[in-house]
């Protein structure tokens, strides 16, 4: 790395910083070593984990939902024609006047 720092002021600051790095206390160094070991140990274990299983599982669930939805029969209301609707209305009228038709059948005049 090319160091472009030229001024005396900046060099002195860097020197101070470097001194503070080399004179870190034993407790801090020990904690840093422990952290590093923990990170390396955990990384090896978790890399065999589940990071790709989650999106793959979500994808499979969505696909399954789409297949199930497409297999369920859906009544297409929008395609009903005007004649179909008239038939339905006339059937309703028939059921509403059922008593009248029974009476008419019983008292039907001879032709």
């Amino acid at each position: 790395m090319k160091n472009e720092i030229n001024s005396e002021f900046e060099n002195r600051i860097k020197q101070r910083f470097d001194e503070s790095v080399t004179t870190l206390d034993a407790s801090t160094l020990s904690r840093l070593t422990t952290l590093r070991n923990q990170v390396l140990d955990n990384a090896g274990e978790s890399a065999s984990g589940r990071s790709l299983w989650v999106p793959m599982g979500a994808f499979a669930t969505i696909c399954t939902a789409i297949v199930i939805y497409s297999l369920i029969p859906h009544e297409n209301v929008e395609n009903k024609t005007f004649v179909d609707e008239i038939d339905i209305i006339s059937e309703l009228e028939l059921y509403e006047n059922l008593d009248f038709y029974e009476w008419l059948e019983q008292h039907e005049l001879p032709s």
Binding site: F17, S20, V21, T22, L24, T28, L29, L32, T33, L35, R36, V39, L40
Partner: peptide
């Protein structure tokens, strides 16, 4: 990785 992290950890900490 261990060597690399050991080489940068002090400066990173500071």
């Amino acid at each position: 990785l261990d060597q690399f992290l050991a080489s940068v950890e002090r400066r990173a900490y500071r």
